[in-house]
Design a protein around this nucleic acid. Structure first.
Lengths: 239, 239
DNA sequence: ACAAAAGTGTTTTAGTTACACCCATGA
DNA sequence: TCATGGGTGTAACTAAAACACTTTTGT
């Protein structure tokens, strides 16, 4: 807009700017996504990604974080990983008016039952595999967000965002296996993770914990590393 | 916006939606970026990324491609690589009004002298290293776009977008060395590129060409591959 | 003849895979 | 005690880095 000599705020039909959220969690070793059910037209009865308008004094990220808190009921939304995926601006994507939407992907550790907070219709976790057709272009948005998360696990420490504050390496490995949909060798996984500086750090206390009935495992915290060297490549490359 | 019961197009102060372009090229083995000089306040005299409003019937990408054609004077803009980088929406980023901007990175092969087309002030190529402070938040946008391009070279065949239709492997290697800012072993580079299916394909004709005074090199075309397996990692990891 | 770049070959090294094996716990 | 998952060790394989070497041009 720098090249415009003079302009008028109201020269164009106004654009609405919204955020749409693809909120992922892991429940029972299944990747799930938070969806709302639309109450009215268009797409009444269809599921959609939660989202909302960006307020006059907000950035898109602030709006996304606010929506995330409203939809999930989580309290410590400040610490959650929120990542801008893409912006969708096709003229016809919302039949009612011109809407430009900034999409975000969020990763939350456990899965609190969502409250249909604020103005939202029912919000529910749904396994990603059983998501049918969504409203608007949300199929595309969800697919883009999913691919982004899958790729990010390879070269960032993002997987820890799915885990509670303290976790075992088995739990962390589960994250990769679930998101990638393929098995990972426990021994090699352990070595790679521990060999990557800043990925995880051991919890000092001698406490131990187990998910099932094996040997108790050591606990770790997320480290400060954002990018991994070398990356943790998934078995099949990028399909 | 799916959760809003009823809404009014004019409920909020209107948002303006714009695109900003970081157009990169390689001139004399230096990475250069296309910048315009602002004529009036705010930031009069400062350089800025070219860009403009998204029209009522356009998508952001369409608007970006249109601006690209206007600013560079290139004719075959349809084939150029254009990539959405991020969307910037901080409330104060333009002092005049609320502007949400979708940033794109573009890679163009040779460097035609830009015409100050359309409503743009003078547009000029400037080496990336000698870019001073830009208007608005364009420093940040340019940095994000640069990092995106650097990273994309690793795992996509994007580098060929900087090259003419037919190029030698030495020229292609120059692209990597210039964008990454570090030397690449010619022998190993050649092997990696040729071992990656779909990255480049040999030009059938026996013609040869040389940039300087060495042995003439074989010519290649860009292959159809978008993602590289394995990735072509830069020496220093990801700084 | 010499420098410079293309292209080929080879050695060395690092990383990954695919296992075998022991340990600690719940049922 | 047996199944289960945690944790360690190790040999085989594979990709990459480093570098020597030949080829073909311009000067």
């Amino acid at each position: 807009m720098e090249c415009v000599q003079g302009y008028d705020k109201y020269a164009y039909e106004p654009f609405a700017v919204t955020v749409d959220l693809a909120v992922f969690t892991l429940r029972e070793d299944v990747l799930q996504v938070l969806l709302v059910e639309r109450g009215q037209e268009p797409y009444a009865g269809r599921r959609a990604l939660p989202g909302g308008f960006v307020g006059p004094e907000e950035s898109a990220e602030t709006a996304a974080r606010r929506e995330l808190a409203e939809e999930t009921g989580l309290l410590d939304v400040a610490g959650l990983h929120l990542e801008q995926v893409r912006t969708y601006s096709e003229p016809g994507r919302d039949p009612r008016m011109r809407v430009v939407s900034v999409a975000y992907a969020a990763l939350v550790p456990d899965a609190p039952q969502p409250r249909g907070g604020g103005d939202a219709a029912r919000a529910d976790w749904l396994p990603l595999v059983s998501v049918g057709r969504l409203a608007f272009d949300h199929d595309r948005i969800l697919a883009d967000a999913h691919e982004r998360v899958r790729a990010k696990l390879e070269y960032t420490g993002l997987a820890t965002a799915f885990c509670p504050p303290e976790f075992t390496l088995g739990e962390l490995r589960q994250v990769y296996e679930t998101v990638w949909g393929s098995a990972v060798d426990p021994a090699n996984f352990r070595r790679k993770v521990l060999a990557t500086p800043g990925f995880v750090e051991p919890v000092s206390g001698p406490p131990r914990r187990t998910g099932g009935r094996g040997k108790p495992a050591a606990l770790f915290r997320a480290g400060g590393a954002t990018t991994l060297h070398p990356p943790l490549l998934r078995p099949e490359g990028r399909p």
